[in-house]
């Protein structure tokens, strides 16, 4: 079947099967920024925005994106760069496989709740697993990013 949707603001059509998941469609079409970590909706690495909301692209059928707006980190490069600066300042970078998922989730938080408390930040990113950092440095970095530092 044909999927027609916007990816990072550009109208695209993709040839997909009805049981293909969005992460696979995107990676197959060169959007390598979509990282697949678990393929079972449990780690957050594959997060993309669907109509501005963070969703797990590994577990959403591509067919569900019909007519919708998909944002990968390629569509928010400036914000990702800002967040990466905050991560670097706090030493929150390690293997980086979860970073893109964090970038998109935290970008969404910034749009909706710039003044999020520590608890609200945790609530927002609890679905993004990181096995490297122990989260503390990431939390500090995210706070700085939300403050616009």
């Amino acid at each position: 079947m044909t999927l027609t949707c916007y990816v990072n603001g550009v109208l695209r059509t993709f040839d997909v099967t009805p049981d293909e998941y969005l992460a696979d469609t995107l990676r197959r079409n060169g959007f390598f920024s979509v990282r697949e970590g678990c393929n079972e909706s449990a780690c957050g690495a594959c997060t993309v925005l669907l109509d501005d909301k963070p969703v797990l692209s590994c577990s959403i059928l591509s067919a569900k994106a019909e007519g919708k707006h998909i944002t990968t980190v390629d569509g928010i490069q400036d914000e990702a760069k800002k967040l990466s600066h905050c991560f670097a300042e706090e030493g929150a970078d390690q293997c980086g496989y979860c970073n893109v998922g964090f970038a998109l989730t935290v970008y969404s938080l910034k749009k909706h709740n710039k003044n999020a408390t520590d608890e609200e930040i945790k609530e927002y990113i609890v679905g993004n697993l990181c096995r490297c950092t122990g989260y503390q440095s990431q939390l500090k970095a995210i706070k700085a990013y939300l403050k616009g530092e």
């Binding site: 390598f32 980190v73 760069k81 300042e89 980086g96």
Partner: peptide, 19 residues
């Protein structure tokens, strides 16, 4: 000293084996 690869990874550049 900032991590040398952090920015590229956050910005989603082609980086890992499968890419």
């Amino acid at each position: 000293t900032h991590s040398l690869d952090g920015e590229a990874l956050m910005m989603g550049r082609k980086s890992y084996s499968d890419d």
